[in-house]
Design a protein around this nucleic acid. Structure first.
Lengths: 352, 352
DNA sequence: TTGTACGCGTTATCAA
DNA sequence: TTGATAACGCGTACAA
């Protein structure tokens, strides 16, 4: 752990000036003899350039930050998996920020952008507050926001389209002949909860079904709470024949409860989840789910960021990613009997 | 996006020297009047200290790198989730490296340690080669390795204990009265594959069961391959009454195939997975699984790292994390009928 | 208590 | 082609 050599050390050793060393190291035109001496000295000393000093001089860190609420959330994770390679291939390192769903932490991250330890920031805010907007306005580095921002906000923005996503699911259920389609949602004061609830109502209208409050049950975005909500709904509306769940965990809870209640899935009740996480393919029956394109959003955000970093300074851009309905056994008639070969569920595991 | 103010800007504005500005900003004893002027100027200018310049001076970046093969791997992810908050609380940022299971990339990461853009590195190598050892020896910053390293390697090291893990599972199955316990493994030339295969053989001996080659089937660490392997095993040994699977994905494949073959789980065949990923709780029946303590390993590694960063420079340390058998429906008699309330499967989802 | 001046390791300019 | 030197932004002896 000896102190690392610098260009000064090399210069002494090679008997040249630090300017020459720098030139050689950066491949600038230099006499062969000098190149040789410098390279030899650098080699012997095990020289590695100091990234911090370079950054101070060049004003570029080759780092990009990605900030989201929770590393464990599969949706964010899907984004991360796409963002990482895009940045890596372009020569950027990824700095990870988990804000634990604390708004103050998000503001902190935006603030710290001024410290210039990264060249840019990709952020998935829980919701965009006034404080966010102020910081965004004052930001000294490019920012890409994944999620809804108020009209007119001057930031690059990547969005999902949960309205269309819910519509895909409702249309699908309707086409299967379901007419009593319930909705199990999370809290309505969250961005996803509100959006998905409204979309459900609208989609029902789209297929000519009446909106019935009794068919809607609010719980939380977790498995146990989802299950409880479904139990209540079953009590109240025994003839429900389909469940639109606001995310996959809720849908897993629905499967638990339906099974316990002796209802067959999908014969008696069809179930659709949302976010299309890995869990959807792992469950039994496997779960039809609406993908909101987390992976695609991550990739799009990373690409927008790279364009900014490479000098693009046009108007803020908006990218909207289309949702996709992934049909599996929970809506598709008879449960799949064979094991699935869908490659997307095949992920490598088990390190040691 | 105007150019940010520096302490010089503030000094001018406040009519004092940069030294005074620096002092105020760092809370060193200063006259009240000066403090006021400086703070005022800093406020008006929206000053934020430059992290790069500080790092160059202080020789500390307050960044730690975490390098593993694949962000999507749930085992690494579990580590990441623990490492992140530990570092964050200690004031360190996390730089994420995904090496895509390419050994050369791992070496790159070790090499880049010399660039001093991080204060330390936590790494989960696929396998430790000669090149690794050389780089580790020359490392100019603290390194913590999660995984097996050759005896005598001078690095902090955190290990799992898959041998004991497998033994827990076999003992459990044996206690349930199973006597024809099969093993579905991944390739034997991988570290986990070899270790788990050997552990299986040893554990059988421990409960007085003979080792029978016919009961072992090699596939790969994926669901479809796992399923295929199980199908072959069933063909060859129809009276198998339990399956020890080398990871959870394989176990999911086993459930698929057993279901298709009309074997009840666990009545006819009990199934145990490994790694205890989220998928284990999501499947039906829910999957008993051996946890190798990924989360605990992550936390331990982060804490070892912090100790080094805070000046600890004693002998290299070795931490071994104990495995744990999580019993669920796939071995536990009648499948659980109610929905589970295990909080560890409740993770927040769905951002938008 | 305050200011001057130097160093952290690089890159880049300008003479020589 | 090369070397001395000035930044980059900050912290800090040392002197005033």
């Amino acid at each position: 752990m000896a102190d690392g050599p610098t260009i000064n050390t090399i210069a002494e050793r090679a008997g040249v000036s630090i300017a020459s060393v720098s030139r050689v190291l950066n491949g600038l035109p230099t006499r062969q003899e000098t190149v040789r001496k410098v390279m030899a000295a650098a080699d012997e000393l095990g020289y590695v350039r100091n990234a911090v000093a370079r950054s101070l001089k060049s004003r570029r860190t080759h780092q990009v930050a990605f900030a989201m609420a929770d590393v464990g959330n599969p949706a964010y994770l899907a984004m991360l998996r796409q963002i990482q390679p895009v940045l890596k291939d372009a020569g950027y390192r990824l700095v990870l920020h988990s804000t634990d769903a604390v708004v103050a932490d998000e503001i902190d991250v935006l603030h710290s952008l001024g410290e210039r330890y990264v060249d840019g920031l990709i952020m998935v805010p829980l919701r965009v507050t006034e404080a966010h907007l102020e910081m965004l306005d004052a930001a000294r580095a490019p920012v890409v926001i994944i999620g809804q921002v108020p009209e007119g906000t001057r930031v690059d923005n990547v969005r999902a389209d949960s309205r269309t996503g819910v519509k895909l699911a409702i249309d699908h259920l309707h086409a299967l002949g379901r007419r009593r389609i319930g909705m199990i949602n999370g809290p309505l004061d969250t961005v996803p909860g509100a959006a998905r609830g409204a979309a459900y109502r609208e989609a029902l209208g789209g297929v000519g079904l009446p909106y019935d409050e009794d068919l809607v049950q609010i719980g939380d975005f977790y498995r146990a709470e989802g299950g409880r909500a479904v139990a209540e709904l079953l009590d109240r509306v025994p003839d429900v024949d389909a469940l639109m769940c606001a995310n996959d965990l809720i849908a897993l809870g629905a499967l638990d409860v339906l099974r316990a209640a002796g209802r067959r899935v999908p014969e008696d009740v069809a179930v659709v989840g949302m976010d299309d996480t890995d869990l959807a393919a792992a469950s039994w029956p496997s779960l039809s789910s609406v993908s909101l394109g987390s992976a695609e959003r991550g990739r799009a955000a990373a690409e927008l960021m790279l364009e900014r970093l490479q000098g693009g300074d046009g108007e803020p851009r908006l990218v909207t990613v289309a949702p996709r309905l992934v049909v599996r056994a929970s809506t598709a008639g008879a449960p799949v009997a064979d094991f699935p070969a869908e490659s997307r569920t095949d992920r490598k595991e088990s390190a040691e």
